[in-house]
Computed example of a mutant assay.
Amino acid sequence: MFYAMTIIIEIECVAGMAITLNCELNQLKPFPILTKNILDLEQDKWDLIVLGDMFYDEDLADSLHRWLKDCFWTHKTRVLIGDPGRPQFRGHSIQHQLHKVVEYSLPEPTRQENNGLTTSTVWDFQP
């Protein structure tokens, strides 16, 4: 029998609390949340990694890219990346290893809050 375990990794404690509150407001059992950076730790075996809007800083993007490649090649982990098309992400070398899954239009208030970004895309990472 297969049991899926879900864990949320969010290094900002306040964001972790917001995730828990969001789960409760939507009548979901809150997921376990780990509030530390795991990029320098020994990797666990993940079947799926879903991450969003993480390529806003070049050093973080480079570390994350290396870590995701290691997860993919070591454990055959599937990686889905959501990003609204920030310049740092569009200009990163990871672009050559992505395949578009779906693109969503952002609601008008979100567009205004995000300096004119109009869509967000989910990418399948395939190094």
Rank of each mutant, 00 (worst) to 15 (best):
M1N: 13
M5T: 07
I9C: 12
I9Q: 08
E10M: 15
C13T: 10
A15H: 09
A15W: 05
G16L: 09
G16T: 08
M17F: 10
A18T: 12
I19S: 15
I19P: 14
L21M: 08
C23N: 10
C23P: 09
C23M: 07
L25C: 05
K29A: 11
P30H: 04
F31E: 15
L34R: 07
L34D: 11
T35W: 14
K36C: 15
K36I: 15
N37L: 02
N37M: 00
N37G: 03
N37A: 03
I38L: 08
D40P: 02
D40Y: 02
L41Y: 02
D44Y: 02
W46A: 10
D47A: 13
L48Y: 11
L48D: 12
V50W: 12
D53Y: 13
Y56F: 09
D57R: 02
E58T: 08
L60Q: 05
L60C: 07
L60N: 02
L64I: 01
H65V: 00
W67K: 01
L68P: 14
K69T: 02
K69A: 00
W73I: 07
W73D: 09
W73N: 12
H75A: 07
K76T: 13
T77S: 11
T77Y: 13
R78C: 05
V79H: 12
L80M: 10
L80R: 06
L80T: 06
L80K: 10
L80G: 04
D83C: 05
D83A: 07
D83F: 00
P84C: 03
F89I: 01
R90H: 01
S93E: 06
S93Q: 05
S93D: 06
I94L: 00
I94T: 02
I94Q: 00
Q95P: 02
H96R: 09
L98C: 09
H99F: 03
K100H: 04
V101C: 04
V102I: 11
E103N: 14
E103P: 04
Y104R: 07
S105I: 05
S105V: 10
P107F: 05
P107A: 05
T110H: 11
T110R: 12
T110Y: 14
R111Q: 15
R111Y: 06
N115V: 03
N115T: 06
G116E: 03
S120G: 07
D124I: 00
Q126D: 15
Q126M: 11
P127H: 11
